[in-house]
Design a protein around this nucleic acid. Structure first.
Lengths: 201, 201
DNA sequence: CTCGTTTTTTATTCTCGATGAGAATCCGAG
DNA sequence: CTCGGATTCTCATCGAGAATAAAAAACGAG
């Protein structure tokens, strides 16, 4: 079953260790480069032990990606939930930008792995995550729509295209940002400014 | 240039087919996912024939990436060379944005493969391309510097960070843009507007 | 101690990069 | 045109390492 027991505590913690490890390796090596032996090493488990929890390499990666997409979405929605609901949409968008970058760059190997790996997945597997991806983008789409309704979006911009361009800017940060060479806050600040100014009417 | 006789015409066209095929596969499958058998199939060649031209898989990928980075840079600089040299820097930047997107999305598997793959390369290989990457980014850096000197850059923006965010937005388009579902010109237009507005003082 | 769950050990199969021994093809000299 | 050498490529196969299967061992609750 995908959805395990509500309680944890057994050594279904091992299972989670394995998924975490998969995300870790996935993030650094990409889909094809993710070897079970590496995952096992990170998870502190013998490689064949993975087969007790997952019926195949694909299954494991599939779950890691699913968890990542879900986490990426929920961390953004959580951040939005904490913000005043009546704030201008453009401000809420800026909050989402910050949350997304924080998630991607420091909080979650899962989210980062999912975002960076999805494009490399074999078609069949990507298909399985279409919906999750859509759910994730829809959160953003709603925000942009609100921004437009409040008249803060440049009418010459196609909202869908603009959104994808913005998300691209955010997602790509994972490729170049080096914690040793620049502060996270710096990246967030630049991204927020670019988005606010860029979309502005 | 790695090797390359100035004249072609022999079956050094085969060699080029192989490099082209490598870029093609690289773009879709990533570094670790690039199998020589797939490259061979695309290039219409038997797999071992590749070893007539390249001494190893690494060598082949290395050259494909080198060609790609070089092409990405030169297509942008060529476009800039055709623009009036005394145009405002912000306009020249917009030209570069358009050229980059055109290259990435329709003109060159090589450029797209290089741009999207470099982060996944093993350290040793990435090292070999540091300079080419720097050359490529430097073209942009120079543009941004000019924009700032002409007073068109928001002083609150860190130029380096802003540049990377912008390049990210461009590079990521390769992940989502679907020629069947939206015009290239639409993407270019959105990107140009976002960049102009986003960087503006 | 015993049974069921979890993990390791051992073994099998498969994929993929690499190579070496030639076969096909091309090309110029006679 | 044809012979012979150089160029270009194919076939068969190796060996490493990966994924998986199967079986055995360790563990833990009752």
């Amino acid at each position: 079953m995908v959805t395990g027991p509500a309680h944890d505590s057994k050594s279904a913690r091992t299972r989670r260790r394995v998924v975490d490890a998969a995300a870790h390796v996935l993030l650094r090596r990409g889909y094809a480069g993710t070897r079970l032996s590496d995952v096992a090493e990170v998870a502190q488990v013998q490689a064949p032990a993975i087969y007790y929890y997952f019926s195949s390499r694909e299954d494991l990666i599939d779950e890691a990606v699913a968890v990542g997409l879900d986490r990426a979405r929920s961390l953004v929605t959580d951040a939005l939930a904490e913000a005043p609901a009546d704030a201008p949409a453009i401000d809420r968008l800026a909050i989402a930008v910050a949350a997304h970058l924080r998630t991607l760059l420091t909080h979650s190997d899962h989210a980062a792995a999912a975002v960076r790996t999805v494009p490399q997945l074999p078609e069949a597997m990507r298909e399985r995550h279409r919906q999750a991806q859509r759910d994730y983008v829809d959160v953003w789409r709603a925000l942009v729509t609100q921004v437009r309704e409040e008249g803060d979006l440049d009418p010459a911009l196609d909202p869908g295209t603009a959104l994808m361009v913005v998300l691209g800017a955010l997602n790509w940060t994972a490729e170049w940002w080096d914690p040793a060479r620049g502060s996270l806050e710096g990246v967030i600040d630049a991204a927020q400014r670019l988005v606010r100014q860029g979309l502005a009417a």
